[in-house]
C-alpha cells in the first residue's frame, strides 16, 4: 500500500487484485478427459488416501491435555500467603472492577486467635463468584491491591444446576501451602508469585 494513489483506486479495484491468490473461474467447456470423469475421481481418491497418513490434529482429551497459553484466564483462585493466611481483606475493589457484576462479598473483623487464618484485621466472611456471569476478563486480578485473587489455568466444569456455578469461598480458596503442599503447588501452577513482605 506504500505506493497507493487515490486517483488510481478505480483501476485497482477493477483491474488489479490486491493479492495474487485470486483465481479466475474457468468456464471453457470440459475436454474429453475431464468429461470421462474417472481421472478426476482417481485424483480425489488419491487425495483422501493420502490423508490417511497425515498427522491427526485431534488429541485424546482427558488423557492428553494441551498446555494453556501463558495469558490464559481461567477459574478464580483466592490466594494465601506463605504461612497459609488468606490475603483477601474484603475491600470490594474487585467487585467494583467487575464489569459483569459477578462478585459479591461480606466483610468481617478478625477476632483474637484468628491471626493464623487471616493476614489482616479485616477478612471476607463470604466471597462468591457467579461463574455464569463472569466473563473471565481478569479485571478483578488487576484491581486487587493484596494479590488475593488471580485467574488460574483451569476452567469451570459443567454442572447440572445453575446454583452449582456460584462458587463460594471453599471452592475458590487455594489449598494450604504448608498442610497441603502438593495440592497447593498444583493449584498455583506456574503463574502466581507470592509477594515477599
Amino acid at each position: 500500500m506504500h505506493n497507493f494513489k487515490p486517483w488510481a483506486a478505480i483501476e485497482i479495484t477493477s483491474m488489479q487484485s490486491l493479492t495474487n491468490r485470486a483465481k479466475a473461474v474457468d468456464r471453457r467447456p470440459m475436454s474429453l478427459l475431464e468429461r470421462a470423469y474417472l481421472p478426476a475421481i482417481f485424483k480425489g481418491m488419491a487425495i483422501t488416501f493420502g490423508h490417511m497418513f497425515k498427522k491427526r490434529p485431534t488429541i485424546n482429551y482427558p488423557e492428553v491435555t494441551r498446555p494453556f497459553s501463558p495469558v490464559f484466564r481461567g477459574l478464580h483462585v483466592l490466594n494465601r500467603d506463605e504461612e497459609g493466611r488468606e490475603n483477601c481483606t474484603a475491600c470490594g475493589l474487585c467487585a467494583v472492577a467487575c464489569p459483569a457484576e459477578a462478585i459479591t462479598m461480606e466483610a468481617a473483623e478478625r477476632q483474637k486467635g484468628e491471626e493464623h487464618l487471616y493476614r489482616e484485621e479485616k477478612y471476607a466472611a463470604k466471597y462468591e463468584i457467579n461463574m455464569l456471569r463472569c466473563i473471565f476478563c481478569g479485571l478483578c486480578e488487576e484491581a486487587c491491591p493484596k494479590d488475593a485473587i488471580y485467574l488460574s489455568e483451569t476452567f469451570a466444569p459443567a454442572n447440572f444446576q445453575r446454583k452449582g456455578f456460584i462458587y463460594g469461598k471453599d471452592d475458590l480458596l487455594i489449598p494450604h501451602p504448608i498442610n497441603e503442599k502438593e495440592a497447593y503447588d498444583k493449584a498455583r501452577g506456574g503463574r502466581v508469585t507470592i509477594k515477599q513482605a
Binding site: H51, M52, R56, T58
Partner: peptide
C-alpha cells in the same frame, strides 16, 4: 482417518 480425525476409540 480420511478426515484426519481419530474415530470411535
Amino acid at each position: 482417518i480420511m478426515q484426519d480425525r481419530r474415530g470411535p476409540n
